[in-house]
Design a protein around this nucleic acid. Sequence first.
DNA 1: GCAACACATAAGTATGTGCTTATGTGTCGG
DNA 2: CCGACACATAAGCACATACTTATGTGTTGC
Lengths: 104, 104
Amino acid sequence: MIDTDIFKALADPTRRKVFEKLAGGSLNASALRDGLEISQPAMSQHLAVLRAAGLVREQRQGRFVNYEVDPDGIASIGTWLARYRAYWPKRIEALADLLKDMDQ
Amino acid sequence: MIDTDIFKALADPTRRKVFEKLAGGSLNASALRDGLEISQPAMSQHLAVLRAAGLVREQRQGRFVNYEVDPDGIASIGTWLARYRAYWPKRIEALADLLKDMDQ
DNA sequence: GCAACACATAAGTATGTGCTTATGTGTCGG
DNA sequence: CCGACACATAAGCACATACTTATGTGTTGC
């Protein structure tokens, strides 16, 4: 299950913080570290998990590796969530149609 | 973090299957078992996790306990996902406004 | 009342996860 | 070239998780 990897990846608070940082723009592994109190290997491992889940993608630039949000991961969550649209507040049932568009 | 509980709960494939079953309508713990090869205690424990995460709510009926999807849990995921709307396909950027409505 | 039922909880165990320290791989500047 | 740098990987360890078997709690029908 690809969903398993995605949800597992997001189940860790540190990884969600990293992901949120990347949502603000592309950053390399070192830049991602400051603010968060985390060792270099730990960050590297977290990024590997996010990458394997399809939530993040990397782009080598010399000796730096730039990470950015992978829209495919976000889209997967959207698709999963769309299956339960019956339980979203009624006001936004129009959402269903929009999500259907997204699947194509 | 409430998000941690939600993502952890959904990271388990069995729990996602249970949740999907409940999305089809309210069911008691025994009814949830058939189809899935899972012991009674294991199901009970999974339901406790889903309940603690706010994804599911229970309703005692005599000696049965009826479970159903809790819309609050679904809404929480929607709210989380809304923060990354910049990375959704452009076509559904209108989604952002709809999600904003949901927060109230 | 009491046996069968529906479910929860306790305790033990195997496996998974996230960290650590140590080391490896590739790149850059002088 | 070579030392400093940016990052990945390996191995070990503490703790969490998902299961098991056994037992507890409350409800129902006879």
